[in-house]
Design a protein around this nucleic acid. Structure first.
Lengths: 204, 204
DNA sequence: CCCTAATGGAACAGTCATGCTCCACTAGAG
DNA sequence: CTCTAGTGGAGCATGACTGTTCCATTAGGG
C-alpha cells in the first residue's frame, strides 16, 4: 500500500495529493466502518459482504486492502485508535476515580459496534500494538491504582480484573439492547450502576 | 440419524443394542466434547479440526453428523442440557437469593468451554429450544424475582439484566484466566465477589 | 476363534471465498 | 470541455472445506 501511495504522490503536485487523499480517505473510512459493523456481528463474513455494506465494489475493497489480512490489520489499528481516543476524552486522571470510571464507561459505550468487534474477534487483537499496553490500558491501570490509593476503589480488585469486568459489562449492556430490545439509555444506566457497584470500596 | 439407529436396532437383539450404544455413545461424546473445545476458541474451525481434536477420522464424524448443521444442532442441545443440569445442581429455589446466585455462579464457572461456546456462538442459540425460555432461564428469573421480594437483590436490576451481567462476568473470569494467567480459584473468587456486589440490594 | 460393527484413509466432485486481471464507466480537477 | 483518478463489473484460477463413496483394517462381543 505504501508503495502505491508514494508512487502516486510522485506523479502529482502537492494540492492534488490532498484532493486525492480526500476521496480515498472517504472510501477507506466507509470500508472500515462497514467492516466494523459487519464483522462485529458475523466474524467470518466474506469480503463481498463487507464491500456491499460499505456500498463499494469488491474490486475497490481489494484495491485498498489487497488481502483479508490487510483489512484486519487496518481494522485492528482503527479500533485501537478509537478506543484510545475515547479513553483520552474521559480524562481518566481528573477527579475522583469512580467518576473517571463513569466517564470512561460512557465513552466506551458510545463506541457501539467497535466494542463488539473487540469481543467477537479477540484473535484480532494479537498484534504488537495490542500487547496489553495501549494508551487506554495504561491510563486505566493508573486510574485503578489511584483509586486504591484514594480508598475509593475496592483494593481486592486488581487493575486487570477491573478492566475485564468493565469490558464485559459493557458487552452485557449492548447485548441487553440487542436481544431484549432495551433502550440504549436504559442499558447505559444499568451498565453504569453495575460497574459502580462492582468497583466500589467496601464501606466496612 | 434416527433412521440409521432404528435400522441397526432392528437387526440385533436388545443386549447388543446396549453394547453398540456404549461404543457409539462414547464416540459421540468425544466428538461433542472436541467440538465444544475447538469451536469455543475458533468458531469457524473446520470439521477436520474437530475430528482431529476428537481423535477420530473425518469420515467417522460425518457418520455421526452428516452435515455441519447436524453437529451444531447436537452441540446446541448438549450445551443447553449441560447448562440446565448446572442450574439444577445449584438448587436456585433453596435458601437466600444471593447464596443461590453464588451457587449458580460456581456451577456455571465449572462449565468452562461450554460457557465460551455460548458467548462466541450466539447465533448457535437461535433454535426453538433456546427461545430464552430454558429451564435454567426460568429458574434464574424466578430467583431474581424472589430476591426482589425478599429485599436481598437490587430492585433496580431486572432479571434479564442480572442474567446478562452474570454471564458476562463469568466470561470475564475465564478470559482473566486465559489472558492474564490467573488461577481458576482466584478468577472464581473475583467473579463471585463481583457478582455479589452488583446484585446486592442497596443498604440505604 | 469368528464375525460384525465400527473405524480410518483415500479419492472425488461440488461449492464458495479469495486474489487477481482486464475493461468500461463516471465524477471531478484543471 | 478534457483528462485522469477512482470505481465497478465480469471473468478466471486457486485453494479450502464439504459431503460422499469405497475399501481395508481393527476392536470387541458371542
Amino acid at each position: 500500500m505504501g508503495a502505491k501511495l508514494s508512487k502516486l504522490s510522485g506523479m502529482v503536485d502537492r494540492t492534488s495529493v490532498d484532493v486525492e487523499s480526500r476521496a480515498r480517505a472517504r472510501t477507506r473510512r466507509a470500508i472500515l466502518d462497514a467492516a466494523i459493523t459487519v464483522l462485529s456481528q458475523h466474524s467470518s463474513a466474506s469480503l463481498g459482504d463487507v464491500a456491499d455494506a460499505a456500498g463499494v465494489g469488491r474490486t475497490t475493497l481489494h484495491r485498498y486492502f489487497p488481502e483479508r489480512a490487510d483489512l484486519l490489520t487496518a481494522l485492528s489499528a482503527d479500533v485501537l485508535a478509537q478506543i484510545d481516543a475515547a479513553a483520552e476524552r474521559a480524562q481518566l486522571d481528573r477527579g475522583p476515580a469512580p467518576d473517571a470510571l463513569d466517564r470512561l464507561c460512557q465513552e466506551f459505550f458510545e463506541l457501539g459496534d467497535i466494542l463488539m468487534c473487540v469481543f467477537s474477534q479477540p484473535e484480532l487483537m494479537n498484534t504488537p500494538a495490542w500487547e496489553e499496553c495501549s494508551d487506554a490500558d495504561r491510563a486505566l491501570i493508573r486510574l485503578v491504582e489511584r483509586g486504591h490509593a484514594e480508598g475509593t476503589l475496592d483494593p481486592a480488585l486488581d487493575p486487570l480484573w477491573v478492566q475485564q469486568v468493565l469490558w464485559s459489562v459493557l458487552y452485557a449492556a449492548w447485548q441487553h439492547t440487542r436481544e431484549n430490545s432495551v433502550s440504549k439509555h436504559r442499558a447505559l444506566d444499568l451498565c453504569l450502576r453495575s460497574v459502580r457497584k462492582v468497583v466500589a470500596a467496601n464501606p466496612g
